[in-house]
Every structure is written in structure tokens, then in C-alpha cells.
């Protein structure tokens, strides 16, 4: 009986470890495929050059880094006011019943396939932007709006949880000192929930940086340094997905190297999010 217990325990341990092994294998594989070209071109030549023309052997991804940064920043700007308002309303003003109904619905937004978001962008936003702001349609702006909606559930849901985690006694203490509900939220509850909300935002950034399908459909994918919000850009993820099909040799390696940059960015963002979240718990 005892040995059977041990066997089950051991089996579960192996399965648990295998997920870590998979992560390590992916990391190793990307490094093995991508690192040689970075070493050859030099980190500076790879990250700080804007020339991306694989046929001529030019592998600089700065334009894509800038594209990713613009779209991510735009997405956060679009998403933050919406998701914070949502979270504040649902946590502080709505009844538990309304909260219990609406929160899962908002989280459902995360379950919509990203190709559907891209499709909505093409069908609804392209004509709007073309008619009212100019440009062709595919642009930083389009991608920011759509991505902003895509990361809404991540930030909203984490923000609601952090607001709900603020001790009820803070609310009562503040109210009993003659504060209005809004003053209480602004001066006591938001500051107390700040770390949790911040880690939600960073996870949202991570999602935006990693999003591929919707971005390919609506960002335009031109390898240029954008001069306005209406310019089309290409992101790091789009670069890989668009060219991997036909890439060989150095070109293929350069795409894997783009993957390394993405991989490291996401890992750093996750570490920051976890550090902040842990700091919030300990105070």
C-alpha cells in the first residue's frame, strides 16, 4: 500500500516537472536557433538597426521593437481608463449580485479568439479611421484600440480582485471620518490596491506584447519607423509569423532571434508583475 502511494506521488512529481522541462526545452531550442545570428551581427546591430531586408542579409529589428512599443503603449492607454472604471464600479458600487454576474461576462472577453478581434478591427475600425482620420486603415491606432479591448479582461479582473482584497475596515474607517464614497475610493482604497492593479497592468502589457493574430490583421505590417498614429507598423510577433513560412538560413535564425527578444521581454514583465504582487501582500 505504502509503495503504491509512493509510486503515485512520484508519478505526479514527474508530470509536474515535465512542464518545467518543456519550458526549458523551448528556451533552449529558441536560443540554439537564434543566438548564432545575434552573435554574428552583434546585439547592437540586431536590436538597434532599422534595416530589415533578409534578402540583402540585413537583420535589424528596431522598427519592429518600436512598432510593438507603440501598439502596447496605445493599448494600455485605451484599456486603463475603461478597465479601472469597470473595476471600481464593480468592486465599490455594485451589489454582490451584479458583480457576480458581470465579472464572469467581462472575463469571457478573454475567451474570444483573437482572429475575431482582428476581424472586428478590419470590418468596423478600418472604415471609421479611413473616413474620419485618414490613412489606409491599418495603423498603430487601430491595433491599439483592438488590443486595448483584448487586454481589458486581464486588467479589470485583477483590479477587481485587488480592490476587493482591501480590508473592509479601511472603508468603514474612512467613511466614519466623514469621507464620501468617492473620497474613500480615491484616498484610501486605490492607494491600498495600487500594487495589485499595477501587476495587473503589467500582465496586460505582457498579453499585448505577445498578441499576434489580431495584430497581423490590423497593424499593417510595414517595416517602417512610424511618424504618426495612423502609420502602419509591424510588431515582433507579426514579423515571426509572417516570414517563418519561407525563411531559411540566416533569415530563419534572425526570426528565432526575434523570438529570443520577445521571450526575454515577457519573462522580465512576468518577474516584475510577481515581484510587485508579492511586495503588495507583505506590505
Amino acid at each position: 500500500m505504502k509503495s503504491r502511494e509512493n509510486l503515485i506521488q512520484f508519478g505526479l512529481l514527474i508530470i509536474a516537472l515535465s512542464t518545467i522541462v518543456i519550458l526549458l526545452l523551448i528556451a533552449l531550442f529558441i536560443l540554439k536557433e537564434g543566438l548564432p545570428i545575434i552573435l554574428r551581427v552583434g546585439i547592437k546591430g540586431f536590436i538597434c538597426s532599422t534595416h530589415w531586408s533578409p534578402q540583402q542579409g540585413q537583420f535589424g529589428i528596431l522598427a519592429m521593437i518600436i512598432g510593438t512599443a507603440w501598439i502596447t503603449a496605445g493599448a494600455i492607454l485605451v484599456s486603463l481608463p475603461l478597465s479601472l472604471s469597470c473595476a471600481i464600479y464593480l468592486s465599490e458600487f455594485s451589489t454582490p449580485k451584479v458583480r457576480g454576474t458581470l465579472k464572469p461576462i467581462i472575463e469571457l472577453l478573454a475567451g474570444i479568439p483573437s482572429v475575431v478581434y482582428g476581424f472586428m478591427g478590419m470590418v468596423i475600425l478600418f472604415p471609421l479611421i479611413r473616413n474620419y482620420l485618414g490613412g489606409a486603415g491599418p495603423s498603430i491606432l487601430t491595433a491599439s484600440v483592438i488590443l486595448g479591448i483584448m487586454i481589458l479582461p486581464t486588467i479589470t479582473s485583477i483590479a477587481i480582485d485587488s480592490l476587493q482584497a482591501v480590508p473592509h475596515s479601511y472603508r468603514e474607517g474612512s467613511l466614519s471620518l466623514g469621507a464620501t464614497r468617492w473620497q474613500t475610493i480615491r484616498m484610501v482604497i486605490l492607494p491600498a490596491a495600487k500594487t495589485g492593479i499595477l501587476s495587473g497592468i503589467i500582465l496586460g502589457i505582457g498579453r499585448a506584447v505577445g498578441e499576434t493574430m489580431a495584430v497581423i490583421m490590423i497593424a499593417g505590417n510595414s517595416v517602417i519607423i512610424p511618424k504618426s498614429l495612423l502609420d502602419p507598423v509591424r510588431t515582433l510577433t507579426a514579423n515571426i509569423a509572417l516570414e517563418m513560412n519561407y525563411a531559411t538560413g540566416d533569415h530563419r535564425q534572425a526570426l528565432f532571434a526575434t523570438g529570443i527578444v520577445l521571450f526575454i521581454t515577457i519573462i522580465i514583465l512576468n518577474i516584475i508583475a510577481h515581484t510587485i504582487a508579492r511586495g503588495g501582500v507583505e506590505k
Binding site: 479601511y170 474607517g173 474612512s174 466623514g178 469621507a179 484616498m187 491600498a192
Partner: peptide
């Protein structure tokens, strides 16, 4: 009303601020 009728709770819960800020909050 709550300024006229102050309240002290069973569990003392200062707001997460300095002593000074706790008092001048209201």
C-alpha cells in the same frame, strides 16, 4: 453626520498612512 457623530471600532484600523496623516485625513 459622520463628522458630527464620530466612531471608533473594535479592531483599531489606522489607515495605511503616517500617524499625522491619519489624524488630518478627516
Amino acid at each position: 453626520l459622520r463628522r458630527k457623530v464620530g466612531m471608533v471600532f473594535a479592531l483599531p484600523v489606522p489607515l495605511p498612512r503616517s500617524i499625522f496623516e491619519n489624524i488630518v485625513y478627516g
